[in-house]
Amino acid sequence: MNTATIARAWAVTRSDGVTLGFTDHDEAIAFDGITFRPDAGLTARAVVQGLGLSVDNTEAVGLLSDSAITEIDLMAGRWDAADVRLWDVDWSAPQNRRLVFRGHLGEVTRNGGAFRAELRGLSEPLNRAQGRVYHPRCAAELGDKACRFDLGRAGYSVEGTVLEVQEGARFRLSGIVGHESRWFERGSLVVLSGAAEGLTALIKNDTGLSGAGREVELWAGLGIAPQPGDRVKLIAGCDKRAETCRLKFLNFPNFRGFPHLPPEDWLLAPQVVK
Rank of each mutant, 00 (worst) to 15 (best):
C238S: 03
C245G: 11
D239Y: 07
P263D: 15
R256S: 14
I235V: 15
Q227Y: 06
K233R: 15
Q227D: 13
L247M: 13
P253R: 13
G257H: 08
P228Y: 05
E264Q: 15
F252Q: 05
V232L: 09
P226W: 00
P270Y: 07
A225P: 06
D265N: 12
Q227V: 14
F255A: 01
V232P: 03
N251R: 08
A242M: 07
D239I: 05
L261H: 07
K240R: 15
R231E: 02
C238P: 00
V232H: 06
L261M: 13
L261V: 02
L247G: 00
R256F: 08
R231C: 02
W266N: 13
P270N: 09
C238K: 05
E243C: 01
G229H: 01
G237I: 05
N251W: 13
F252H: 05
L234V: 01
L261N: 02
R231K: 10
D230E: 01
G257A: 09
W266D: 15
D265M: 10
F249V: 01
L261S: 06
K248H: 03
L268Y: 13
I224F: 00
L261R: 14
R241S: 15
C245E: 07
N251M: 10
Q227C: 06
N254R: 14
A236G: 06
A225M: 07
I224V: 15
P263C: 11
L250W: 11
L234D: 00
K240W: 14
A269M: 12
L268V: 13
D265H: 10
Q227R: 12
K233W: 04
I235F: 05
G229S: 01
N251S: 10
P259N: 10
K248Y: 03
I224W: 08
D265S: 13
Q271V: 04
V232Y: 13
L250Y: 06
H260L: 14
K248I: 02
F258L: 11
K233I: 02
T244R: 04
K248A: 08
G229F: 03
P253N: 13
V232F: 08
D265Q: 14
L247S: 10
A269P: 04
Q227K: 12
G257Q: 10
P259T: 12
P253F: 10
K240L: 14
L261T: 03
L234G: 00
K248W: 06
V232G: 05
L261P: 02
V232I: 15
P228K: 06
T244D: 04
K248G: 02
I235H: 03
F255K: 01
P262A: 15
L247V: 05
F252S: 09
K248E: 00
D230Q: 07
P228I: 00
N254P: 02
K240M: 07
I224R: 04
G257I: 03
D239C: 09
P226E: 07
F252K: 04
F255L: 04
K240D: 07
G237F: 10
F249D: 05
P270D: 14
G229R: 00
L268P: 03
